[in-house]
Design a protein around this nucleic acid. Structure first.
Length: 441
RNA sequence: GGCAGAUUACCCAAGCGGCCAACGGGGGCUGACUGUAAAUCAGCUGGCAUUGCCUUCACAGGUUCGAAUCCUGUAUCUGCCA
């Protein structure tokens, strides 16, 4: 199944009067410009709209996925998406709440632009009347001189307004302050909206509500320069009900790039969604209809132990990002490793395939003496021997589903499953895999 | 450019010459309990050859038997003044 085929199976829910209503229901609109006018615009003839993605890493993450899905939902409603990659803004970096960013080199950013671009293409259709358009804001800023920038663009921005933007104000208020570079970011993003309005008649920008200051910077500029009222939608920040940060697993970001986050890890992330969050996640991250989601909502209440909502969520999102084949492999691996059955009873082929999905190590990564400490560190489950020792002391170390309490005990191939595999576990659900065979051949 | 203050582990934040691998909180990890959920309670949270040793309190030097703590210089940040 190619990508266009996969995309063609996605639909908006026809039970909604229009896409605005559906997005409201899915909780995708935290703030926006004039609601009534926006709803009208989105219910009428196709409009052109955009969302920007800055290359600040080699891959997009789950926060970006929300935006990509918003783009896709609007495209399904007949509108024309423009996906912007921030080749220019990525060189500057938008101000973060916490601290000043360190600048990345031009080469690095250029490389990230390419990888982001290919990731974005996966989520939008490029066929038909409203096929997506890709742009890079370096195209209109790269050749712009500082003087032209200050005269033509800067003149439209009031420092008083810029300083009052929430993110700028809070940074000014912090110990660290803010550099002129990051302070200027909002001007660049405002300029993007104006350029896209001129070049592609773009009249709506979507983005995270944390970007609201930058979004309105664009609508204001277009109004001042072009005399046109254009729109902006800010999506809510996705948060976990228990107050932890969404989109992190073991402190690592969940990336969309399979090299940086395996489909297995990705699947597990979604499967571990809390009951309190799962319905909201289904609304935001899947194309399931209102009726279907209502059914899952009931199941969470009636039979939470079945975790059907979580399973469906994990299936849908993993398939969307990694494809159905990869998802099925992640499920098979999960079933083998978390299943009730004895690990001994799993056949070699299944075990081998499951192991491939886990962080793994080979004989060559290990010394002669294999203790549980060595195995935990070799698989990356623990980052130091001290830490591994603590875990053993806590009673959280397992080898082939057996708790290991002696940190000095030496294991050999005869302890391994089928004489060659070790399944190492830290805690309830962090697994690693060791294949003793792969070193010998 | 001048003056003053700040810089402690993932984050916030104590410490003001030995009792400091460094209080406390947050976060994180593990255990009990469970549904690969949440809540609650408990333990842990620099490294290693783990009853001991090593490296950490912005960076580089210095004083001292001994420094996160005192001195000098450098960097960065903040405030006030120019």
């Amino acid at each position: 199944m190619n990508n266009e085929e996969f995309l063609s199976r996605q639909t908006n829910d026809p039970s909604f009067e229009n896409i605005w209503q559906e997005m409201q229901w899915r909780g995708l609109i935290q703030v926006s410009t004039d609601e009534a006018k926006l709803e009208e615009a989105l219910s009428g003839d196709p409009i052109n709209y955009y969302c920007g993605f800055d290359p600040t890493a080699a891959s997009l993450h789950l926060g970006h996925l929300v935006q990509l899905l918003v783009l896709r939902r609007l495209q399904l409603a007949g509108h024309h998406p423009v996906a912007l990659v921030g080749g220019a803004t990525g060189l500057i970096g938008d101000p973060r709440q916490t601290s000043e960013r360190s600048l990345n080199t031009r080469d690095t950013v250029e490389g990230w632009v390419d990888s982001l671009r290919s990731q974005i293409e996966h989520y939008l259709s490029f066929d038909g009347d409203n096929g997506a358009t890709m742009v890079n804001n370096l195209d209109w800023t790269g050749g712009l001189s500082a003087l032209d920038f200050l005269r033509d663009i800067g003149k439209h921005f009031r420092v008083g307004t810029m300083v009052r933007k929430e993110i700028v104000a809070s940074r000014l208020d912090s110990d660290e302050g803010i550099s002129y570079t990051e302070f200027s970011y909002q001007v660049l993003q405002g300029m993007d909206f104006m350029e896209l309005y001129r070049r592609h008649n773009v009249t709506l920008q979507t983005g995270g509500s944390d970007q609201w200051g930058n979004l309105t910077s664009g609508t204001e500029l277009v109004r001042k320069v072009e005399g046109e009222h254009v729109h902006a939608i800010g999506t809510p920040l996705i948060t976990n009900a228990d107050g932890t940060k969404f989109g992190k697993s073991e402190g690592n970001a969940i990336w969309l790039n399979p090299e940086m986050c395996s489909p297995y890890t990705f699947y597990q992330f979604w499967l571990n969604t809390a009951d309190a969050d799962v319905v909201e996640r289904l609304k935001v991250f899947t194309f399931l209809s209102r009726a279907e989601i209502a059914e899952y909502e009931q199941k969470v209440v009636d039979e939470p132990f079945r975790r059907e909502a979580q399973r469906r969520l994990a299936w849908e999102v993993t398939s969307l990002v990694h494809g159905e084949d990869q998802t099925q492999r992640a499920i098979d691996a999960s079933a083998a490793l978390f299943g009730r059955g004895d690990l001994e009873s799993i056949d070699v082929t299944t075990l081998h395939a499951a192991g491939a999905e886990l962080p793994s190590a080979e004989q060559s990564d290990l010394g002669e003496r294999m203790t549980i400490i060595d195995l935990l560190v070799a698989t990356g489950l623990e980052k130091s021997k001290s830490s591994a020792r603590r875990t053993v002391g806590d009673g959280g170390a397992y080898l082939n589903n057996t708790k290991i309490e002696d940190p000095e005990h030496i294991f050999t191939a005869t302890d391994a499953l089928h004489n060659k595999y070790f399944v190492v576990r830290r805690g309830r659900r962090n697994l690693g895999f060791i294949d003793l065979d792969s070193a010998s051949n």
